[in-house]
Design a protein around this nucleic acid. Structure first.
Length: 259
DNA sequence: TGTCTGACCTGTC
DNA sequence: GGACAGGCCAGAC
C-alpha cells in the first residue's frame, strides 16, 4: 500500500541524475507497518533510531492514509511501507519484555521526554499515580501537565501510559478510553478490585510491620505482605511518621525516598 | 505574549 | 464521603 503524498517524492528521487546517496531515503521517509498488539492491530512508524508513533488501527478506522496524515501532522515527514519491524517491537506490543526496543523521542520537548521516560520505568503489573510521574520527571507540581503529555503519548503500549492512575485509586482517563486501560491492566494481572477496595477504605499505601517498608499497593513487594502483617496508610507521610521507610523499588514519596 | 485547555490534586464545606 | 473550586503547569494557538 502506498501512502498519499509519497508518489511525488518517490518520482522525484527516481529522477535524480545520480544514484541517491546511501541512507538518503531513510532521512526523507519514515517506515511504517501494521502489527498485532494487545489493542488489536496497530500501525507503527519508525526511523533508524527507533519507534516514533503508534496508533491502533481502530483509532484511524483502519485507514493507513489517515495514520500517515496524523503522523505527518505531528512529525512533518511522509511514510513508506517497511519490510520488517524494528528489533523488539513485536514482543513489546504483546506486553513482553523487549530490552532491544528503541524509541525515537528526539523531537519531543524535554518535559515530554522526561514524562515518557518515567512512565516507561513502571514495571508491568504495577501502577503509579500522576504525581509520582511528575516527581520522577523533576517537576513535582506539574501533575496536570503530566496528564496532558500522556494524552498525547506518541507511542502507547511501548510507553505504558495505561499504568498511570489517579492518586485517589480511580483509573483516570485513557487516550483510547478507560475500558481499554482497564483491559490492559487486568491483562497484566493488576488486581484492580483489591486496589479499589483499599481506596474505598482510604488506603493508598501498604506497609509491612516485619520489614518496616511501605509501598504502593501494586508494588511487587506489597503483594508479598501477608494480611497479618499488612498495614494500610492514607498518605506516605503518615506511614513515615509511624516508622516506615519508603520502598526503594516503587519509591512512594520524594521526601522520604531521598532520606 | 497572553489566553485557553486539560488523562490532576487537594482543601473545604 | 461526595461535590466543588482553586491551584498548578506546560503546550497549543
Amino acid at each position: 500500500m502506498m501512502i498519499d503524498g509519497v508518489e511525488p517524492i518517490v518520482a522525484a528521487l527516481g529522477g535524480l541524475a545520480a544514484p541517491a546517496p546511501a541512507g538518503l531515503t531513510g532521512k526523507v521517509f519514515t517506515g511504517w507497518l501494521a502489527a498485532p498488539s494487545r489493542l488489536g492491530e496497530v500501525f507503527v512508524a519508525f526511523t533508524g533510531d527507533g519507534v516514533q508513533f503508534v496508533r491502533p488501527a481502530e483509532s484511524v478506522h483502519g485507514d493507513a492514509d489517515a495514520f500517515a496524515e496524523a503522523y505527518r501532522d505531528r512529525f512533518g515527514r511522509p511514510l513508506r511501507p517497511a519490510d520488517r519491524a524494528p528489533a523488539g517491537l513485536l514482543p513489546a506490543l504483546r506486553g513482553r519484555p523487549a530490552p532491544s526496543l528503541r524509541l525515537d523521542l528526539r523531537r519531543l520537548p524535554d518535559f515530554e521526554r522526561d514524562v515518557l521516560g518515567a512512565t516507561r520505568r513502571i514495571p508491568a503489573g504495577q501502577t503509579r499515580p500522576y504525581g509520582w510521574i511528575a516527581r520522577e520527571a523533576g517537576r513535582p507540581r506539574a501533575v496536570r501537565a503530566v496528564g496532558s503529555v500522556l494524552a498525547r503519548n506518541p507511542v502507547p503500549l511501548l510507553v505504558p501510559c495505561h499504568r498511570v492512575v489517579r492518586a485517589d485509586g480511580r483509573l483516570g482517563d485513557y487516550m483510547f478510553g478507560p475500558a481499554h486501560k482497564e483491559e490492559l491492566l487486568r491483562a497484566e494481572n493488576v488486581d484492580l478490585d483489591q486496589v479499589a477496595a483499599f481506596a474505598q477504605q482510604g488506603v493508598h499505601y501498604l506497609g509491612s510491620d516485619t520489614t518496616g517498608v511501605v509501598c504502593f499497593p501494586t508494588c511487587h513487594n506489597a503483594r508479598r505482605i501477608s494480611p497479618a502483617h499488612r498495614h494500610g496508610f492514607r498518605t506516605i507521610g503518615i506511614a513515615v511518621a509511624a516508622g516506615y521507610r519508603p520502598c526503594r523499588h516503587c519509591r512512594p514519596g520524594v521526601e522520604a525516598a531521598s532520606a
